[in-house]
């Protein structure tokens, strides 16, 4: 058995805060930051990184190609 863990890296300067990745995420990992980047956008970031499964949905819908997705398989010990 293995479980999948993922992580998302958002290029915060490139992000325009359109929110499409936040909506596309099935695990509610992402949210818009209360801070803004140098252009004044509330950029996207991981608010619940532990939930990320690396499904790439956020990256797929990102119009600005500012999301990189990583994924690892983590072996789960059988009880």
């Amino acid at each position: 058995m293995a479980k999948v863990r993922g992580a998302v890296v958002v290029d915060q300067e490139c992000c325009k805060g359109c929110n499409l990745c936040v909506v596309a995420c099935p695990e509610n990992v992402l949210g818009l930051h209360k801070e803004v980047n140098s252009k004044g956008y509330h950029y996207s970031h991981m608010v619940s990184p532990e939930n990320c499964i690396g499904c790439m949905n956020c990256g797929m819908v990102c119009p600005d190609s500012c999301i990189t997705v990583y994924r690892v398989k983590v072996p789960v010990e059988q009880d």
Partner: peptide, 27 residues
């Protein structure tokens, strides 16, 4: 431990340039 090059599954295409897109957000 997750964010390592060997674990990358999705990212910007190499054919895309570094120029930021001028489009409106969400376009």
């Amino acid at each position: 431990d997750i964010i390592k090059p060997e674990n990358k599954v999705y990212g910007k295409s190499k054919i895309m340039t570094d120029t930021p897109l001028h489009y409106c957000y969400g376009c």
